[in-house]
Design a protein around this nucleic acid. Structure first.
Length: 879
RNA sequence: GGGAGCAUAGCUCAGUUGGUUUAGAGCAUCUGCCUUACAAGCAGAGGGUCAUAGGUUCGACUCCUAUUGCUCCCACCA
């Protein structure tokens, strides 16, 4: 035998992946079969594979491969997301390393750099997915900034603008001073942050001069006092009624501002006095609107104080905070400082502290879109798995605010709004169309006078079209897509596998877009995977350095092992605690499969021999077991219980097929195996490999190809998954009884130090009806099974019971130990019997419980009574 | 502050309309085996008052209430 004893994944993974690619097995074209389509959640184009991707894509691959083997036309569309903020930040950083500032480049020059970066790094993550075995249709690989996809985005913008859902306005937005752009509410992460509450003295104006009296105002942001427009008190706060109509001075700059009254102020928080800074706080902005306060913006786009601040100009807001506190202290305006824990908004992408900032942005009205998207889920047209996410989904959809879709970046789809010299604008997909439209406003306008909006669109404004746009790429029209063959065939997709943290960012918005443009849901099931955490429960992250490199893992253990490791610990919606031992388990499993193959491969077949009795039994039993497992797996898959399905096939292969079946059919040393059993075994093995294939594509292909001579281009990938047949449950229970008997005998051998090689006699009390007796003989190494009415009391030996059948093996025993064991057994059963009897003597139980439950208890009673009786007899004999 | 979820063996989790469960699995642990497919293996064993306290019920891991601990989401008290 020339097969090595250990499976070496590196010898077959690349080989078979190339084979699949060469034979275009992942590629799908519409045909008469039922489609099964999945779109990949597009990873960031500049990203690298992390454990979350591994988990996510393994599950997708399992589903796709399974669908393919069920005879469906499976299509898994891969691609990447341009991720505007993240990518732009990386490009800016790279330029900086070269000593180039973004501001020194033109938009075109910058974009050239960005595309270069994309070409260099964009494919990395997809190449990594190939190592995992992902059976994506690579010919359909898309990028959210591909010309056709970008066109779709622009057309969508124009469409919503003309529908009146997109508007432009000055609003307080979440400003990311590092990314130098506005971000949407969803991109702001609130973190509990340790900060300080500063109590400042504001002196009351005495006829335009700084008076002697002061009030104390608590603030977390002393650096913004220069932008204060008023001090606000609650109208019901009698403590401050004396301030009505008075004015007050801002410390340091001595600017006089009014005292105003508003219900917004909480009397018992801080001092009950609130400094109102309309330009730098969303609430203050709203108070300002109510009281017509001036808005003074003293922080620039970098988060630094500008000249309007008068002091500390050019200082970063946090530096300014430190400095101004000192200045206030020196000036006698600082009362005290308290530690304070408060939620502070951070940018999802850059982690910068968000600065509320007034700016001119584009918004999409969400109310109606959200209502419809909520209905899709509530009506069950989209199933969230697990369904408890429906609650959070509903909450979000009911409280959603308008979506800020403009970003002050260059990397992305530029907003198709064109400004006329007079400040008016038109929204059209192209400059030519815009020119036509502009002429209607101003007949004298020249094309070159039109200036396109500088901003780009939020990345999610392109990814929400993903399940539509990936099929539409060869058609210029959007939303004119009726005639698109691929879209008509593959849309809607079936399942979406993604992480719960982008349920709102992405999933909800895809539902909105699909409803708007396709009039139906973009997918039926949304399977939300857990977040992969380390053993300590921390989220895997680059900064913590606790995320293993998936490629290193694959190199070390093999892709199949990594996949099994991920699958075994993945239950929907629950966080996943990753530990390398799971991958190790996967590797061991590969090895087990490999060695089972080596065994069958090494058998020599005797064409004329008849199957042994034990082999015949094993075949009968295993075919029943196989069918049962197939049914169980189908059930698990229908409920997205992927880890259970994995465990079902894992145990079927290892515990049933290897540990019992192969042992039962294995010919004695030096002997050949009969043809019938051999053929059956290979058939079973073939079925098992097919069932395993979606989980472990590489090793199964390798072994399947080696089982027999295959045609050119043949692959296990396209074989039909075995179907369950009618089977007898009795064959299974009979076998289990026999196996129980074998286990008892093995146990006895071990405790008595009897070698497995030593043949034993086995006596059993009549009647012993079991069709699997030969299994006992072979696997327990029993020379004969003799049925008797009563055991020979003159023989010393060991008794044991399986279910209610009594067995006896004559061997030398330690009588005292045996007595102790039996006594303990009797005690245990007596206790159990007592509890059953108590139940049965309870009239209420007998009258209320269903008949079959009562019957069951009665059976337990009689069984236990029986057992105690024979145990007592045994005890007598021992004595 | 509001909402959701979780708590079962050392670890990770099943337990699917409350009764075939005297609570299961995998891993880990321990014991014995280099048995001619596999020591990445084989054969066995031990290990849980199902977070706590009540309640409903003939019967509760399962349903209800409260408490404790953890996690996540949402939220403009300076």
């Amino acid at each position: 035998m020339d097969i090595p004893a250990k499976y070496n994944p590196s010898l077959c993974e690349d080989k078979w992946y190339s084979y699949w690619l060469e034979n275009k097995i992942f590629h799908s074209e519409p045909d008469e079969r039922e489609p099964y389509s999945i779109v990949i959640p597009p990873p960031n184009v500049t990203g690298v594979l992390h454990m979350g991707h591994m988990m996510n894509n393994t599950i997708q691959d399992v589903l796709v491969r399974r669908a393919r083997m069920l005879g469906k036309n499976a299509c898994w569309v891969p691609g990447t997301d341009h991720a505007s903020i993240a990518t732009e930040a990386k490009v800016v950083a790279r330029l900086k390393e070269k000593g180039i500032e973004k501001t020194s480049l033109t938009r075109e020059q910058f974009l050239e750099e960005a595309w270069k970066w994309k070409e260099e790094h964009g494919g990395i993550i997809l190449e990594q997915l190939k190592k995992l075995g992902a059976s994506c249709d690579w010919d359909r690989t898309k990028f959210t900034m591909d010309p056709a996809l970008s066109r779709a985005v622009i057309n969508t913008f124009v469409y919503f603008y003309k529908k009146g859902l997109i508007y432009r306005g000055i609003r307080m937005v979440n400003w990311d001073p590092v990314g130098m752009t506005a971000v949407s509410d969803e991109e702001v992460i609130h973190k509990e942050t340790k900060s300080k509450l500063y109590y400042l003295r504001y002196f009351i104006s005495d006829g335009g001069k700084v008076g002697k009296d002061y009030i104390i105002i608590a603030t977390t942001r002393p650096e913004t006092i220069m932008a204060d427009a008023a001090v606000c008190i609650n109208p019901n706060d009698e403590r401050y009624h004396y301030l009505r109509g008075k004015k007050i001075f801002i410390p340091l700059i001595n600017k006089e501002i009014p005292i105003i009254e508003d219900d917004y102020v909480t009397m018992d928080f801080g001092t009950g006095c609130l400094k109102v800074t309309p330009a730098h706080d969303i609430n203050d902005y709203e108070i300002g609107l109510r009281h017509h306060l001036p808005v003074l913006d003293i922080i620039d786009e970098h988060g630094r104080l500008n000249e309007k601040a008068q002091i500390l100009v050019g200082e970063d807001r946090f530096v300014a905070r430190e400095k101004i506190v000192k200045m206030l202290e020196e000036a006698g305006n600082l009362e005290k400082i308290e530690d304070y824990l408060s939620p502070v908004g951070h940018s999802e992408r850059t982690d910068a502290v968000i600065e509320p900032r007034l700016s001119l942005q584009w918004f999409l009205k969400m109310e109606v879109l959200a209502q419809k998207a909520l209905k899709s889920v509530e009506d069950g047209k989209v199933n969230l798995i697990p369904d408890r996410f429906t609650n959070t989904y509903r909450h979000w959809m009911e409280t959603v605010r308008d979506w800020c879709i403009s970003r002050q970046l260059w990397w992305g789809q530029q907003i198709p709004a064109y400004y006329l010299p007079n400040g008016e604008f038109v929204v059209e997909a192209t400059l030519d169309e815009a020119f036509e439209a502009a002429k209607k406003i101003d007949p004298n306008v020249k094309k070159e006078d039109l200036k396109q909006d500088e901003d780009v669109l939020d990345t999610w404004f392109s990814s929400w079209l993903w399940p539509i746009s990936v099929f539409d790429a060869d058609k210029p029209g959007f939303p004119e897509r009726k005639a698109n063959r691929d879209l008509a065939y593959y849309f809607p997709t079936k399942d979406l596998i993604t992480a719960p943290d982008i349920l709102f960012f992405w999933v909800a918005r895809m539902i909105m877009a699909a409803d708007e443009f396709m009039g139906q849901e973009p997918f039926t099931n949304v399977y939300l995977t857990g977040i992969v955490r380390d053993k300590l429960g921390r989220k895997m992250s680059k900064t913590l350095g606790n995320s293993p490199d998936p490629l290193v893992l694959i190199a070390k253990y093999g892709a199949d092992a990594v996949r099994i490791g991920m699958l075994l610990c993945s239950s929907a919606g629950n966080d996943v605690f990753y530990d390398e031992s799971q991958v190790e388990q996967g590797r061991n499993f590969c090895n087990k499969i490999w060695n089972a193959f080596r065994l069958t491969r090494g058998w020599e077949v005797d064409e004329n021999a008849k199957p042994s009795e034990s082999a015949a039994c094993a075949v009968k039993w295993f075919s029943a077991k196989l069918s049962k497992a197939i049914n169980q797996m189908e059930d698990h898959f229908s409920k997205f219980r992927i880890s259970d399905a994995t465990m079902t096939i894992y145990k079927l292969f290892w515990d049933e097929f290897c540990a019992w079946y192969l042992e039962a059919v294995k010919p004695a040393f030096g002997e050949k195996i009969d043809k019938v059993t051999y053929t059956k075994t290979i058939e079973f093995f073939d079925s098992l490999l097919k069932l395993l294939h979606p989980f472990m594509p590489f090793i199964t292909e390798e072994l399947w190809q080696n089982m027999e001579e295959r045609e050119k281009g043949a692959t296990i990938m396209l074989q039909k998954l075995p179907k369950a047949t009618e089977y007898s449950e009795e064959d299974i229970t009979m076998f289990e009884e026999a196996a129980g008997c074998v286990a008892n005998i093995r146990n006895m051998r071990q405790s008595k130090g009897i070698s497995p090689k030593e043949k034993l006699d086995l006596f059993v009390k009549k009647p012993f009806v079991n069709s699997m007796k030969p299994i006992i003989e072979k696997l327990a190494n029993v020379s004969k099974i003799e049925e008797v009415d009563a055991f020979d009391t003159s023989l010393q030996g060991v008794n044991f019971m399986v279910s209610t059948t009594e067995f006896f093996i004559p061997v030398k025993v330690d009588t005292a130990a045996e007595i102790a064991k039996v006594t303990a057994e009797i005690e245990r059963y007596t206790k159990f019997l007592a509890s059953v009897k108590a139940k049965l003597s309870n009239e209420k139980f007998v009258s209320h419980a269903p008949a079959q439950v009562v019957e069951l208890e009665k059976k337990k009673e009689s069984d236990a009574t029986e057992k105690i009786k024979s145990l007592n007899e045994l005890l007598q004999r021992l004595k």
